[in-house]
Amino acid sequence: MTKVTMTVNGKTVSKEVRGNMLMTEFLRDELHLTGTHVGCDTSQCGACNIHVNGANVKGCTIFAAECDGAEIATIEGQANADGSLNVIQQAFQDHHGLQCGFCTPGMVMSAAALLKETPKPTEAEIRHYLEGNICRCTGYHNIVKAIMAASGQDVSSIAAE
């Protein structure tokens, strides 16, 4: 067991963890932050994406022990301080960028990382950036549209239908 201390969504947490404990397990089982989902075991689906020191990372492919001292952001910490949806979350709702909601936390975390890096991404940049985020429900149309809208671009000309 190793003691780890990290900041999760602005709060400091300290826990004893097993060496083989993944961040997804740490968040879900130890901190009861179940918004970070596990959709595969080959590090491809992206339902578990979180930010570690600002970097977009698959929570299922990093150990809790590796995050000692890190700043972690998860979907639970994304809303505005007053609890309202942030710009990206709001755009996902406005443009129906989610259906079953399972991939959604990872999508939102990826979108946030993308917009930090590229404030006004093109459609192609968004699609390329989402290479590691699989959605089975939406066909991606409304996810791409939502991210474009969240970046302040006019999406009214995209086939609304």
């Binding site: 994406n49 977009n56 990372v57 950036y129």
Partner: peptide
């Protein structure tokens, strides 16, 4: 390589 999250690590 891979995807952005893979490239982070």
């Amino acid at each position: 390589i891979g995807d952005p999250a893979v490239r982070s690590r």
